[in-house]
């Protein structure tokens, strides 16, 4: 199954209990030879979708923070995100079961 990363970015992610875990912000890969393998999904607390003015401002603030140490991101191992419905990605565990970054 193929998932379009550009459409996945910004999607809201819920955990098994239906609690908000953040939005898809980036994907960490490892390049092995000619292949790139996904290792981790990065979730961020802010919005990556830009629809309204306030979204734009929020998004820019997030961008500013994302490069600093204080950025609030959650790292999800590749097998802990269920993408069978790419519009509604879900964690296969609880938020507090995620490994600490």
């Amino acid at each position: 199954m193929i998932v379009n990363l550009e459409l996945l970015l910004g999607r809201k992610v819920l955990d098994v209990n239906g609690e908000k875990a953040g939005r898809v912000f980036d994907v960490r890969c490892e390049q092995q030879g000619k292949e790139a393998i996904v290792r981790e999904w990065v979730l961020a607390a802010g919005s990556h979708r830009t629809r309204s003015v306030s979204d734009v401002v929020q998004f820019l603030l997030l961008q500013l923070r994302a490069r600093t140490e204080t950025a609030k991101v959650r790292v999800v191992p590749w097998d802990k995100l269920d993408l069978r419905d790419p519009r509604n990605p879900r964690l296969t565990c609880r938020i507090d079961e995620l490994p600490a970054e």
Partner: peptide, 10 residues
Amino acid sequence: ERFGWRFFVF
């Protein structure tokens, strides 16, 4: 590059 197409289009 930095902000992505969805922002840049504005």
